[in-house]
């Protein structure tokens, strides 16, 4: 839980920082230049109406999403319920009209309660209600490629590579056996941005993908899952 609060705090601080930095003189006429302003106005670098630096011409893209996920493979045998408890956020820097790179991270809580049954071992029988939990906190370097930037729909593909904090819990009644580890993580995804406005500075984000982390405990070979995300994106300037 401390990890999650910390990450949330950092994200919040990042957002506040970025919005307070953005003391920009906006041109008096709408609409504001589109994200790829320089592509259309390559010689206007000294123009007082043009954005003054690259971070303004390519504002940071922030997105925050609700995350639904389900485990796959041996992790699914451990906790099979689809988890509706999760979120995922990303902060990307557009290096050109198509490519953006940055950081992303989130939280997912998988939970399953198994009704009372008797577990047999040689010479021992244990009757218990078991609760299986996997909490996952991925933090990844993320690259995103948009196929089109000038239409009202922006389909994209993305790839995240980083680490995943896996908090494994197996409860026998009220007795917990747990294990917390940082593992490698990789996550490819496809998505769609639907801007609400012409300036394309805010809109809807939809994403679906797959995530994989190696893991080895109690018959779980890896923690892999599918996910679906829906949320908002915004250009921070």
């Amino acid at each position: 839980m401390k990890n999650i609060r910390f990450i949330g705090f950092i994200l919040l601080m990042a957002v506040i920082n970025i919005s307070s930095f953005a003391q920009v003189f906006y041109p008096p006429y709408p609409p504001y230049p589109p994200r790829d302003y320089h592509a259309y106005h390559p010689y206007h670098d000294n123009d007082q109406y043009a954005y003054r630096n690259t971070s303004n011409s390519h504002p940071l893209l922030f997105s925050l999403n609700y995350n639904v996920a389900g485990t796959l493979g041996s992790a699914h045998d451990f906790v099979g319920n689809v988890s509706p408890r999760g979120w995922y956020a990303s902060l990307l820097y557009p290096i050109n009209a198509n490519w953006a790179v940055g950081l992303s991270g989130g939280y997912q809580d998988y939970y399953q309660k198994i009704p009372r049954q008797v577990y047999h071992q040689p010479g021992s029988d244990i009757s218990a209600v078991q609760t299986h939990v996997i909490e996952s906190i991925p933090i990844m370097a993320t690259g995103q490629y948009s196929f089109s930037t000038d239409h009202s729909l922006h389909p994209y593909v993305s790839l995240g590579v980083g680490v995943n904090n896996i908090n494994y819990q197996q409860w026998w009644g009220e007795y917990e056996q747990s294990d917390n580890r940082w593992k490698f993580a990789v996550s490819p995804a496809v998505g769609l941005e639907v801007p609400f406005t012409k300036s394309q500075s805010v809109g809807l984000n939809i994403q679906a993908g797959y995530a994989y982390s190696p893991y080895n405990r109690n018959g779980i070979n890896n923690v892999s899952n599918w996910f679906g995300r829906i949320g908002l994106f915004a250009s921070l300037r």
């Binding site: 919040l12 957002v15 506040i16 919005s19 922030f62 500075s201 805010v202 908002l232 250009s235 300037r237």
Partner: peptide
Amino acid sequence: MPGLIVLAFA
């Protein structure tokens, strides 16, 4: 607007 939305979500 964008800033507000982002803050709300954060």
